[in-house]
Amino acid sequence: MFEARLGSTTLLKKIVDALREILSQSTLDCSDSGIQLQAMDNSHVSLVSMLLQNDCFEKYRCDRNISLGLDLKSLSKVLKCASGDDAVTISAPDKADKVQLSFESAGKERTADYELRLLNLDQEHLGIPETDYSCVVIMPAIEFARICRDMTSFSESVVIACSKDGIKFSASGEMGSANIKLSQTSKGDVDLTVEEPVTLSFAGRYLSTFTRATPLSEKVKIGMAADVPLLVEYPIEDYGYIRYYLAPKVDD
């Protein structure tokens, strides 16, 4: 038996919104310690890794490991039927072919149950090595989203250059060019840890897709090192994270 109750549906809605532009279907791997997800986009350029620890939930029970293959569009439709302040319980028996989502209104006067058919997804998992990123930048998530939006209107490629002086985003296209530089401030809203400067080029549309996770967190962490995928991490309160990895563009 698997059963997980969240006090508010809003968190689940935000998580699904953060995933569904990059993934159409995905498997939730549920174990005693919590729920994990790892999946690549269709073109195998980016990867999403999510962790929700069991202490994220008001109630959590997972008698044996279970994989729940879900169509995220369908899950999103079900979540639209619920209010943000409803409590939600996700449950499935062992060897399930369906998952149940039960919503309970804040005053407990309304309950609604939905069943979703599970999918048998054959998802490939990649080993993500521990990486010492040469540059780690923590900045307001809203600022990162704004920069990605502004950059992608100039060019398909975004160059990110990070040094002790700051992090610089550049895009150059037919229309012209754009450069945005953020320096570390005494207010502490931009925090830079730089061992070595790094400059890498990335596809802007993926960066923009990652910013769908902005409502999850005030801060975003960006990790860069030469010739490794970019890390963009949004913490989920103190209970987990959504991490996106993006392969860089390489010179031919």
Partner: peptide, 14 residues
């Protein structure tokens, strides 16, 4: 010019 790398160039299948 630059081309897009794939994740499998960096991360190995488990």
């Amino acid at each position: 010019s630059a081309s897009q790398a794939k994740l499998k160039d960096f991360f190995k299948p488990k």
